[in-house]
Amino acid sequence: MIDHVHDLTAVREATDRLLDAVGELDNAAVAGPSRLPGWTRGHLLAHLARNADALVNVLEGRPMYASAEARDADIERDASRPLDAHLADLRESAARFQQATDAPADWTRTVTLRNGVTDLAARVPFRRLVEVELHHVDLGIGYEPADLPAEFTAREIEFLTERFSGHPDVPALRLTATDGGTWSTGRTEGEPLTVTGTAAALMCWLAGRQGGPELETGGAPLPVLPPL
């Protein structure tokens, strides 16, 4: 069962961790490369702020972004700002998101995200949590996949395996976490390939991050997953 109140608490805690960590940076570090190809840390911070506002739009019945081009332009516009501007924007956009989620609402309603994707309003807080937690790791400033809360990691694996379930471009897979948990995903036909590793490594691989060297496949090539 989705518990949006629980997830909103997790979002606040994750945002506080992010703000504390980013607050230790300087302008040169913000301008440096992140772990996402082609993006500086400033790009990631700008994206996180604009994503908070975009999810406010979703909750209030507006398009998530005016367009894909506008989304990308906003990130490029804000990426090169100094640290203080990024921090202020992150705090202010997080406050707007919290204000929107504090308003009385029907959390069982269906909302529309990017590209016509729909979901329950109650899932929006977890979607925001994913953005904050994964992009904190993507910043490459000391917060690693193993530092992610175990509950978050397991839930994100559940979310991603559900998303890839039955996908024609994903072979049948059985995922086994050495620290607990098994999942199945991909095509339903064929003998499943077993991929073994820590839950954090499995989650990173499913989410399109590094995880290959830490994953065991019994000698078979690790499949390349389609983009999310």
Rank of each mutant, 00 (worst) to 15 (best):
A79Y: 04
D106H: 08
I141A: 14
G218D: 11
L225I: 01
T217R: 02
Q99M: 11
A88Q: 13
D106V: 10
T101A: 13
R128Q: 08
E158L: 09
E156R: 12
T178H: 10
A95W: 03
T198P: 04
I141M: 11
E216H: 12
T161K: 04
D138I: 03
M203E: 07
S184A: 13
M203A: 13
F97V: 06
T198C: 07
E216P: 01
P213Y: 05
R114E: 13
A103N: 09
T108S: 15
D169P: 07
D119R: 12
S165C: 10
D102N: 14
V170M: 05
A146L: 13
V117G: 04
R91Q: 13
L134P: 03
V195R: 01
L83H: 05
G211E: 01
R128F: 03
T185Y: 04
G218T: 08
A85G: 10
R155G: 09
T178G: 13
D138P: 03
R96A: 14
T217N: 03
R114V: 09
R163A: 15
D147G: 10
L134V: 14
R123W: 12
T110H: 07
L90I: 06
H86N: 11
A122K: 04
W183P: 00
P149A: 13
C204A: 12
D138T: 03
L134C: 09
E156Y: 12
P104D: 06
L87Q: 06
A207R: 03
T198Q: 05
F159D: 15
H86P: 10
P125Q: 07
R163V: 13
E92T: 14
A199Y: 00
G186F: 01
V130M: 11
R123S: 11
S93D: 03
T178L: 11
H135T: 02
E214C: 07
P221Q: 02
H135K: 10
E151C: 07
E191L: 08
E144M: 11
T153N: 02
